[in-house]
Amino acid sequence: MTRTSGTSGTTVRGTAPHEARVALELRELGRRYGRHWALRNATFRLPAGRVCGLVGPNGAGKTTMLEIIAGLRRPTRGEATVFGAPAGSAEARARVSFLPQEKPLFTRFSVADTLRMGRELNPGWDQALAEDFVRAGSVALDAKVGSLSGGQRTRIALAVALGKRPDLVLLDEPLAELDPLVRRQTVGALLAEVAERGITVLMSSHLVAELDTLCDYLLLVSRGGLRLAGDVDELISVHRLLSAHGDAVVDAPDGTPAGLEAHTVVQAQRERRQVSALVRPGGPVTDPWTAAAPTLEEVVLAYLEQGDADALISPNSHVPGTGTEVAA
């Protein structure tokens, strides 16, 4: 369910509905630096109109993935398409904005110069949008970029990214190093644009807690590749956090606690007298286990800690013709 499909036939920027539904598609995408694979075998679809979180441990290839989609890097293997156009092609580049983690700007430019750069280099530039966005953060247009605070610089960088009128915005750790107030303002401003124009957002973060109220879609990558992909509410609802008193549960010979045979166990751990397990339920929960709904953070951490758990790719992010498991 995307905002696009729910909007009585109106689609993003007049593109054909079937095309507009998929903002991004990766097929077996991989990138190697020397002998080290920074990213391997990433396959998924991102429906248009979503605010998607990209989480994973450091070194899992989040930045590499974003840079490939933005057209800054070539993949070693596989392919990425943005609204049907190959990443890095002129068509794809015109529809994608990317805000790197370091939020690079020309420090000797004024804010007005920075916006002019956007205007000079992008045919679809929206000067009014960019200027409004800057003014809303009470940044003067004639201020030198080098004299701005981190939060103000983020706003300018975001103004350039949004003034391009992209359909897909890629953000690499956008909220790191921002104080809570600026973070809230920045998020609010970004989400307002999402509401206004139905753009798709893909943002990486290593702070899962930060994402679960912000994003409605989630991708989890680890060194092994893609672990989770799907609607946040859905990812939570297909999991249960089971717990039991340690004395009441014996471990099976393979080390997993007994009584969970009916479920797919993502991760189980024994701490003192408490045994807990994150599972994808396959039947009723039996004594002595009690079940609770997990938080997104608990789901994500379980998949991160148990790197070999089966990947869970929800149907709307499944790429047809690839062999990943589909949930439900």
Binding site: R50, R184, G188, A192, V194
Partner: peptide, 13 residues
């Protein structure tokens, strides 16, 4: 979204 930093998809849902 602007005042409460809530994802518009969440609000619409």
């Amino acid at each position: 979204a602007e005042t409460c930093a809530v994802n518009p998809n969440t609000t619409l849902k």
